[in-house]
Amino acid sequence: MASDAHGADEGGLVFHPMDQFIVKPLFGGDTVAWYTPTNMTLWLGFAILAVIAILVLSTSKRAIVPGRGQSIAELAYGFIYKMVEDICGKEGVKFFPYIMTLFMFIVCANFLGMIPTAFTPTSHFAVTAVLALMVFITVTVLGFVKNGTAFLGLFWVSSAPLALRPVLAIIELISYFVRPVSHSIRLAGNVMAGHAVIKVFAGFAAIAVISPVSVLAITAMYGLEVLVSFIQAYVFTILTCVYLKDALHPSH
């Protein structure tokens, strides 16, 4: 390895890009049982507090002319409400609290994860897989409850030539079941990638010559990650809306 060749030169160059994702018990101990409060629990709790601060505390005055905090709350509300209404139509509005929960949770977890030394729950596949599976199961169950077997028309592309339809049905079926996978890995992968890359650049900062470049790179990546934090939450939410629309109006 490199350190064998250069010896003491790179003694300080240590990469642990993945250590920041380790789930540790919060109050000591080694085993992580299902109920153990971990560092993840702590940051999930912070996410709850952030959601409450943004949406509940800031609107406590119920001002007709909103202040700064209330404007943010109203902006978030209007943003998601319009998205749900535009994509899913009027029937989708009753899923608005559910979608708003997903969006606010992901946004708060992502942004809190941008604090140095913080833990980012959304970088774990277990977390995003649960979120994506919840969406997947909701959409599938809702589709069959609302449309019965007509929901299967989603896979039978009636606008295609008859000979092609079985092939397309297989492709559609595969793409339907890949949805939760890509849905969850997209979010976790993006967040994890950004954090890991920042950590790698931070490892380079140990070398005096490279450290200014490294610090600049960290700064640039940080800006990109702030953007990605929001965009991934937006994409997750909008894809949820698109999938919900499939369940509500399965016509192809």
Partner: peptide
């Protein structure tokens, strides 16, 4: 713009898959 972001997300997801394989 919503379609734009969805398209970008789909394209980017495949890159993330490659990154995941690397990791």
């Amino acid at each position: 713009t919503a379609t734009l972001f969805i398209g970008i997300a789909f394209a980017e997801a495949l890159g993330i898959f490659a990154f995941l394989v690397a990791l």
